[in-house]
C-alpha cells in the first residue's frame, strides 16, 4: 500500500457516496447511466470472486465487500426505487460492444489460462471502458447536474491516482502489472475530455455544459 493507491481508493469510495447521495437527495437517477452501473457490478463480481480463495488484507476484504454491495445497491435504487426517473431512451449505448471485446481480449491476453484468472482479466478490460455509456449519455444530453460531475470527477481521480501508484511500485517493489497498467491508462484517457470541462467550467462555478 502506498499513498497514491490509498488516495485512489478513497476517491473511489467518495465517488460512490456522492452518487448515492445524489440519487437520494434529488430522489432521482436522472443523468446516470444504468448500463454503466450494471457494468460496474459485473466488473466487481468478476474480479472479487477471489474473496473466496485469496486473502490479501482486512482492508482489501472490506473494500471488496463494499464495492460489490454498494454497486448492487445502486442498481436496486435505479431499477426499483427510482425507476420512473430513469430514461432508457437516452441510455442507449450498446454494451455488447464493450462486453464482447473484453471477453475476447481476456481470452487472448492474460497471465494464465485459468477460469478465475480470465475473469480477473476480463474485469480489468471491462472496467477500462465501463464509463463509456455514462460519457455517451453526457455527450448526448450535453449537460449534467453539478453533483453528477463531482461523481465522475471522483471516479476519474481514482483511476488517475493509480498511475503514480504503479510508477511508485515499479521503483520501490519492482512490481509491474502490464495488463492493469495498459487498461488503466486507457481508462484514465477516457476521462480527459470530461476533466477539461470539469476544471474549466464546474470548478469555476459554472454549469457543466458542452458546446453545442
Amino acid at each position: 500500500m502506498n499513498l497514491f493507491r490509498l488516495l485512489g481508493d478513497l476517491s473511489h469510495l467518495a465517488s460512490i457516496f456522492i452518487l448515492i447521495h445524489k440519487i437520494q437527495t434529488t430522489r432521482s437517477c436522472r443523468g446516470i447511466s444504468f448500463q454503466t452501473q450494471a457494468l460496474y457490478v459485473t466488473v466487481f463480481v468478476a474480479r472479487y470472486i477471489d474473496l473466496f480463495f485469496r486473502w490479501i488484507s482486512l482492508y482489501n476484504f472490506f473494500m471488496k465487500i463494499f464495492f460489490i454491495a454498494s454497486s448492487v445497491y445502486i442498481l436496486y435504487l435505479m431499477k426499483y426505487r427510482y425507476r420512473p426517473t430513469h430514461d432508457p431512451s437516452i441510455d442507449t449505448f450498446k454494451v455488447e460492444y464493450l462486453v464482447g471485446p473484453a471477453v475476447v481480449l481476456s481470452l487472448i491476453f492474460n497471465y494464465k489460462f485459468e477460469f478465475t484468472e480470465i475473469l480477473w482479466t476480463f474485469s480489468i478490460y471491462l472496467e477500462a471502458v465501463a464509463i463509456l455509456p455514462q460519457l455517451f449519455m453526457l455527450q448526448r444530453t450535453g449537460e449534467a447536474e453539478t453533483i453528477t460531475t463531482h461523481y465522475l470527477a471522483a471516479l476519474g481521480a481514482y483511476r488517475a491516482l493509480y498511475i503514480p501508484n504503479w510508477i511508485y511500485r515499479y521503483f520501490t517493489e519492482d512490481v509491474v502489472d502490464p495488463i492493469a497498467i495498459v487498461a488503466g491508462l486507457v481508462q484514465t484517457g477516457l476521462y480527459l475530455d470530461f476533466f477539461y470541462v470539469y476544471f474549466t467550467k464546474v470548478l469555476q462555478g459554472q454549469k457543466f455544459e458542452l458546446p453545442a
Partner: peptide, 10 residues
Amino acid sequence: HVVEETHDEL
C-alpha cells in the same frame, strides 16, 4: 518482476 496472480489492488 511481473505480478502474475498477485492481484492485490482493487
